[in-house]
């Protein structure tokens, strides 16, 4: 016994050595969860503290590279946002087109959704530019409306864009009527105010009240019948006294136009053919 203790004491160094080697090897080669015990990895409190304060200093060294990376990432993300917005707009257009009522009256018409890319309201002759053109099926003489009412008529068409004569343009003459009656007149802009226009040539014997709704007459091939235009504000006599001129408050807010519908009349050629025949007779 005495010898054994002596032996142990004498060789304590080697026992320690073997113990440590065994512990190290156990740590090194075992893959059980104890090996990855939190105290033995950099996840422990002390390491966290030390690494935390060290990185507090060293993180400044890498700021330049990090900044560059962030700029690159930012650029790519921005590109992605633009792409996604573009896609979203396409889907929105589809959804918008699907949501439109297609009753029998409207079935001869087709809509193309377009976005206003330039617009004016303050000039004497106002025009609107759309982001769709002949490749999207837009042709001259097509009517343009938005969710509120009449906007104008397509005038010039490019491949990817088109110019619209706004209602706020003296060149534009639109056949309109008071909703519920059959008397019609011509809507023109008097150049004064971007949300008002004048409905001329209304028969004098007819009575109109303030607030009556004015809609398109449907007598031209451009707009279907019944598209809202505005409401009656007041009426004034015209020079020759046979007709009234009604001041109309327009439904369409020309200052905030964004998405519009371009109306394609599928029967336009047929109608034009008819009226051409009339003239020939």
């Amino acid at each position: 016994m005495h010898n054994l203790i002596d032996f142990l004491l004498k060789n304590s160094k080697w026992f320690l050595f073997i113990l440590y080697v065994v512990i190290s090897c156990w740590l090194l080669f075992s893959n059980n969860p104890y090996q990855h015990h939190i105290y033995l990895t950099s996840a422990n409190k002390v390491s966290r503290l030390v690494y935390g304060s060290a990185s507090g200093v060293t993180e400044y060294f890498n700021l330049h590279d990090i900044n560059e990376d962030l700029q690159l990432r930012n650029a790519s993300l921005e590109q992605e946002v633009i792409d996604l917005r573009h896609q979203l707009r396409i889907y929105q257009e589809d959804a918008y087109a699907d949501s439109l009522a297609t009753d029998s009256l409207m079935s001869q018409f087709k809509f193309v959704i377009a976005h206003v890319i330039s617009n004016s309201v303050s000039r004497a002759h106002n025009y609107i530019t759309l982001d769709k053109g002949s490749l999207d099926g837009i042709k001259p003489e097509m009517g343009v409306v938005d969710q509120n009412g009449v906007v104008g008529i397509v005038n010039i068409v490019g491949e990817h864009s088109s110019r619209v004569i706004s209602v706020l343009n003296p060149k534009m003459r639109l056949s309109c009527k008071v909703k519920g009656s059959e008397y019609f007149g011509t809507l023109v802009w008097d150049g004064k105010n971007s949300d008002e226009a004048v409905l001329e040539e209304m028969p004098r014997h007819e009575r109109f009240t303030k607030g009556d709704t004015i809609v398109t007459s449907g007598y031209s091939a451009v707009f279907p019948e019944g598209i809202p235009v505005g409401t009656v504000m007041s009426h004034a006599k015209e020079h020759d006294d046979n007709f009234y001129a009604l001041r109309i408050k327009l439904f369409t807010d020309f200052n905030t136009l964004s998405t519009v519908r371009v109306i394609e009349n599928l029967m336009k050629d047929e109608l034009n053919g008819l009226s051409a025949g009339e003239e020939n007779d």
């Binding site: 440590y20 090194l28 090996q35 105290y39 002390v46 390491s47």
Partner: peptide, 12 residues
């Protein structure tokens, strides 16, 4: 080892 996440390598 703790800091470097090298289980027991340096210890051994």
């Amino acid at each position: 080892d703790m800091f470097a996440n090298t289980q027991g390598m340096n210890a051994l």
